[in-house]
Design a protein around this nucleic acid. Structure first.
Length: 434
RNA sequence: GCCGGGGUGGGGUAGCAUGGUUAUCCUAUGGGACUGUGGAUCCCAUGACUCGGGUUCAAAUCUCGGCCCCGGCCCCA
């Protein structure tokens, strides 16, 4: 016996049935927003990840040397691959490009609630547009997606900010070590106020600066309103440009009727160094789970990869947290098998079974029948376990008059019918699930 | 890598504090009976103390270590 690798999952047919429904909802919504599906290899050159990442990230790669002596890694995220494709094809693509993908990703991390070593992640990105409408489109798609899955504004909160806002603000305070400060701000929710102050103090900020930072971070709330206030309180060329673009995003989201989902939160910074503008995060309102989405604008990644300047905005959504949240709300689909027709037999009726099953399958029904020569009772039991909607009973005795029995397994109603009748017009007597 | 809580048939469990007959119950799976209606029922069978060391006359039970699972930290691209 072999054990499943830590942090990985097996999906049995009934579990897979539920996942398929969720994934198809996701795909449908995203495609309604005009995104096209892409895919890239699960393996890439190790360097694709080592170039822009720190040592800690590299430690979490599933990496190995191939037979040609190349260092290879399983992809831990999709963005580098997509940007690689984009850079190599940029001359032949017409921009903006709206792409999505639901890759399987691998990260060698310690599994926790909502975090696994192998998982799926929906990625959507818009490349080529710097316009605030692109940012809005991405955020709207995230919101619509959650609505279509069955969530509403009482379940989730989308917090939006812009990294440049915080940076410009820190500059006005004379603070330049963004990297350290952002890191601490990112932790603020998890630690006490004293620890927060202490950590900032440790990197040589004074009380006055710390107080101002706290006041600034607390200016969260309704997106439009908060931004209006910001623009009153913070003048200056750099900062007003950022505020202007946030205002556009806010107004646009408002026009789409999504204002209830959105709030402004200047403490959202999303990781480090990666993002260059708008950033957003989606959480459950109770904060029971880790972030469901994270995304934002990353305008200079293509250049980092040796291409031309291609502005980009997008997000990633992992399937693990999504499943936890949907289960908590009771909207994860039922894990049950689905079959349209099961044919039960009594005696030697092989010929008729072959004929009927073929006709039904040709008409698009999902059909199965007994392969074990079981008695009728056990066949019915088995049909129920397969989730069959309808049951056909073909028995030697009734067949002498050309009859078979047809039973609706959901209502329990059954009737006798001519076999020839079912064969000539199956859709009249049987229904397909879905 | 660090910290905490756990591992009893395929799944879910009782037993463990206070060591002592054949390890409980539900479910699942397989077979059989009811001679074509039973999505049943009844009968039979299958099947477990995570692994290794220690204490003891005796360990599922106490103890140490490994492995694995769950949760948290770190990190979260």
């Amino acid at each position: 016996m072999f054990e499943r690798l830590r942090g990985t999952r097996d999906f049995l047919p009934n579990e897979m049935a539920a996942r398929k429904k969720v994934f198809s909802t996701i795909k449908k919504t995203v495609e309604e927003f005009g995104f096209f599906e892409t895919d890239t290899p699960a393996i890439e050159l190790f360097d694709l990840y080592s170039i822009k990442s720190g040592e800690e990230i590299i430690e979490e790669l599933y990496a190995f040397e191939d037979k040609g002596g190349r260092m290879i890694s399983l992809r831990p995220e999709l963005t580098p691959s997509v940007v690689r494709v984009l850079v190599s094809k940029s001359k032949e693509l017409s921009f903006p490009v709206k792409w999505y993908s639901i890759p399987r990703l691998w990260r060698y991390e310690r599994p926790q609630s909502g975090r696994l070593r192998e998982f799926y992640q929906l990625n959507i990105d818009i490349f080529g547009s710097e316009d605030a409408r692109a940012d809005t489109e991405v955020i709207s798609c995230a919101i619509k997606l959650l609505c279509d899955l069955g969530f509403d504004d009482s379940d989730i909160e989308v917090r939006v900010s812009d990294r440049r806002l915080l940076q410009e603000f820190l500059l006005t305070l004379g603070i330049t070590n963004f990297h350290d400060v952002l890191r601490i701000i990112d932790k603020r929710e998890k630690i006490s106020q004293n620890d927060f102050k202490g950590m900032l103090f440790d990197i040589n900020l004074d009380d006055c600066q710390i107080n101002k930072i706290e006041t600034f971070l607390d200016s969260k709330g309704d997106l439009l309103q908060s931004i209006e206030e910001l623009s009153k309180n913070h003048k200056g060329e750099g900062i007003s440009k950022v505020i202007e673009s946030l205002k556009k995003i806010a107004q646009n989201l408002h026009d789409r009727g999504y204002e209830k989902f959105i709030s402004f939160d200047p403490s959202i910074v999303r990781g480090l160094d990666y993002y260059t503008g708008m950033v957003f995060e989606v959480h459950d309102r109770k904060r029971e789970f880790r972030a469901l989405f994270g995304g934002g604008r990353y305008d200079n990644l293509a250049e980092l990869f040796g291409g031309e300047h291609i502005p980009a905005v997008g997000f990633g959504m992992g399937d693990a947290v999504l499943e936890l949240m949907m289960r908590r709300k009771g909207i994860w689909p039922e894990e049950k098998l689905e079959l349209d027709v099961f044919i039960a037999t009594i005696g030697n009726v092989e010929k008729e079974v072959s004929k009927v099953s073929t006709v039904l399958r040709d008409s698009g029904f999902r059909v199965d029948f007994d392969l074990m020569s079981r008695n009728l009772s056990n066949q019915i039991k088995f049909a129920t376990k397969l989730g069959a909607r309808s049951l056909l009973i073909i028995g030697e005795r009734d067949l002498k008059d050309g009859n078979i029995t047809i039973r609706d397994l959901e209502t329990g109603k059954e009737s006798k019918i001519l076999l020839s009748e079912v064969v000539s017009s199956p859709s009249k007597h049987l229904t397909k699930v879905l």
